[in-house]
Amino acid sequence: MAGLSNEQQENVWALWAKGESIRLIARTIGASQTPVRTLLRRHGGVKPPPRARNRRHLSLSEREEISRGLAAGLSCRVIAARLGRHHTSISREVAR
């Protein structure tokens, strides 16, 4: 969210959970009340769960392994077998 850093947002949620007022939260994190109020309103006053990458998406380390495999002259099927992925997932990544 624009206006508050990740650290400030975490502090907002921690202070809000303790029952602190918006005014005190804003003063504590060194921000105005508007972004604090906006953050709380956007999520209905309930801290959202942490974002997680979909397990079906390739991770950065898997992409690196694909790159290494291609540099070593391995086929998409061999790379896929090493990563435990379907070969079409690897070929689509290579095509990108």
Rank of each mutant, 00 (worst) to 15 (best):
R56E: 14
R85F: 06
I90N: 13
H57M: 07
A14Y: 11
N6S: 10
S75C: 05
V78C: 01
G30R: 03
Q8L: 00
R63K: 08
P35G: 00
A2P: 13
G69T: 00
L4W: 11
N11L: 10
R68L: 09
R41H: 10
E64Y: 02
Q33P: 09
A31T: 05
R37Q: 11
A72S: 09
G3L: 13
A17P: 04
S75P: 08
I22C: 06
S21V: 02
G3W: 15
I22M: 02
P49E: 01
V12P: 07
R82P: 10
E93T: 10
I25F: 03
I29Y: 01
G44F: 01
L40F: 14
T28A: 06
A52K: 03
G44N: 07
L70R: 01
S5H: 06
L74D: 12
G73P: 07
A17Y: 02
L83F: 10
I66G: 01
R55L: 07
A17D: 15
P49H: 01
E7C: 12
W13H: 11
I25N: 09
R85N: 10
L58R: 02
A52T: 07
I22R: 10
V36T: 03
T38N: 13
S89T: 15
G84Q: 09
Q8M: 11
H43Y: 14
L15H: 13
L58N: 03
N54D: 14
L70A: 00
A31D: 06
G44A: 11
E62H: 10
E93Y: 06
R96P: 00
P49D: 05
P35R: 02
P48D: 03
V36K: 11
R51D: 07
P35D: 09
I66Y: 00
T88H: 04
S32G: 15
N11V: 04
V12D: 02
L39G: 04
R55I: 08
G73Y: 04
L70F: 01
R37M: 07
S59I: 06
L24V: 05
R55S: 09
H87N: 12
H86P: 00
S21A: 04
L4S: 08
R41A: 14
H86Y: 11
P35Q: 04
R82Q: 12
G19L: 03
R41V: 02
A31G: 01
S67T: 12
V12Q: 06
R96T: 04
I25E: 00
G45K: 05
